[in-house]
């Protein structure tokens, strides 16, 4: 099943997922710091901040999920495989697809880890 066609993978598709991860990290970091750095009242609940982070997290996870799906399909087009040490366009393609898949998986997990604090901590303590 070839939906997106071949030879569409490049460096940009490869780094898309980690870029979303980086964005998510900075977003959570800045927003939480903006909320808590004044140190005004560590016991006030920060529902708004948690909600905002939750929404952004869902969006990021969906985007990374789409990248996972796409790279998975592209990779499976010619049966997957992890050999990429030949000097051929196919091997290059396969390398990019498989790396994209792994990086997207890692980014997905990382985004979930980054969200765990707002699930468990409800204020600026």
């Amino acid at each position: 099943m070839q939906i997106f066609g071949k030879t569409q993978d490049n460096l940009w598709t490869l780094i898309a997922a980690p870029t979303i991860w980086a964005f998510h990290f900075l977003f959570c970091y800045f927003l939480a710091a903006y909320q808590c750095a004044p140190n005004a009242d560590p016991f006030t609940r920060i529902g708004g901040t948690r909600l905002a982070i939750g929404v952004v997290t869902v969006v990021c996870l969906v985007l990374i999920g789409l990248i996972v799906r796409r790279s998975w399909r592209e990779w499976r087009v010619d049966g997957g495989g992890t050999r990429n040490n030949q000097d051929t366009p196919e091997a290059r393609e396969r390398f990019l697809e498989f790396s994209t898949l792994l990086l997207a998986g890692l980014s997905f997990t990382a985004v979930i880890f980054e969200t765990m604090p707002v699930l468990l901590i409800g204020d600026c303590r």
């Binding site: 880890f113 468990l120 303590r125």
Partner: peptide, 18 residues
């Protein structure tokens, strides 16, 4: 790692309660 993170994060607000 998720389990350890969960454990550590759960500890923090408890230790810092009023």
């Amino acid at each position: 790692l998720a389990a350890l993170l969960f454990w550590g994060l759960k500890m923090m607000p408890e230790l810092r309660r009023p």
